[in-house]
Design a protein around this nucleic acid. Structure first.
Length: 288
DNA sequence: GCCCAGGCACTCA
DNA sequence: TGAGTGCCTGGG
């Protein structure tokens, strides 16, 4: 990926497989606002970053070369060769080819694990505007102010909050889960820092010890923040689009869908999931 | 006013 | 093991 520094910004020239709208709108993260056409502000990794995309480049600002190389390169997965992934997934699969064509600028992020975990616990049985609202209130209450925005709170900033404090942020029944999650992370009963040595099955099991974390939430955390690209988070949208496109409209269990995805896409299943998720939003709407 | 949303815990067979 | 049910809240 070719990039250069100009004034307060980093410019990616003709970035391959990089469409900021698709990356942010494909459901993997929550803390972003659209500030203009093809322009977004994100709050992540303890920073505020603007991204403006035009025909032949993407600008990151304000951003130093060191920030870009130490934080954003990894965050936006810029060292991964998406052309090769797309080529492998498309082979002998017209359905996937269409999904990839539709979301060709998607990239899987590498987010902060504890933010990702807490956010996806909040996401369950909930809708996106409300999820964003709860996370915003959580940040405004416990996080550090930066300009006009608030960073996602650190674990130490959340450590003393009670279940009732979380409930007051209108988390509903999820308040108990977030409290349990923070407690386990602070005490070390759950650990997101030293996960490399665990197999994906072991990591799944350890995440699911947290209340309110089932397979779907755990899979999202593993895929979006812990680099486990082989998992296939199966939410209602994925279930619908898989049944529609790969199972001839037949009701199919999540277990069966997982087995199918593992067999068909293997170590690339997570990428396949994102293309399908983004595709499903448009496809199901158009074919109602 | 009802329905449901990017699941999960809990119960019961 | 698997199916069934309740859950906070607020936008459509």
């Amino acid at each position: 990926m070719e990039y250069s520094q100009t004034d307060d910004r980093i410019i990616l020239k003709n970035p391959d497989s990089f469409n900021i709208t698709q990356i942010l709108e494909c459901g993997q993260c929550f803390r972003f606002v659209k500030t203009a056409d093809n322009e977004y502000r994100i709050i992540a990794m303890g920073k505020i970053l603007n991204i403006r995309q035009s025909a032949d480049c993407a600008e990151f600002y304000p951003c130093t070369l060191a920030e870009f190389e130490n934080i954003w390169k990894k965050y936006f997965d810029l060292d991964t060769d998406y052309s090769s992934i797309k080529e492998k997934l498309s082979r002998n699969d017209e359905i996937m080819s269409a999904a990839i064509e539709y979301g060709s600028g998607i990239r899987l992020l590498n987010q902060d694990p504890s933010e990702c975990l807490i956010s996806f616990i909040i996401s369950q049985n909930n809708n996106i505007p409300r999820i964003k609202g709860i996370i915003k209130r959580l940040s405004e209450t416990y996080g550090t102010k930066e300009g006009n925005d608030y960073l996602f709170p650190s674990l130490s900033q959340l450590a003393d909050a009670s279940e009732d404090d979380f409930f007051k942020l209108r988390m509903g029944f999820r308040a108990r889960y977030v409290k349990d999650c923070v407690d386990k992370l602070v005490s070390g009963k759950a650990d997101l820092e030293n996960t490399q040595k665990l197999t994906t099955a072991e990591l799944l099991e350890s995440l699911m010890q947290i209340k309110g974390v089932g397979q779907k939430v755990a899979d999202c955390v593993m895929l979006f923040s812990l680099g486990r690209r082989e998992v296939f988070p199966t939410d209602v949208w994925i279930k619908r689009i898989m049944e529609k496109l790969y199972f001839d409209d037949k009701e199919t269990s999540i277990k069966e869908i997982h087995a199918f995805a593992e067999d068909k896409w293997g170590s690339l299943a997570g990428y396949a999931q994102q293309y399908l998720y983004y595709y499903s939003k448009a496809y199901i709407k158009d074919n109602k």
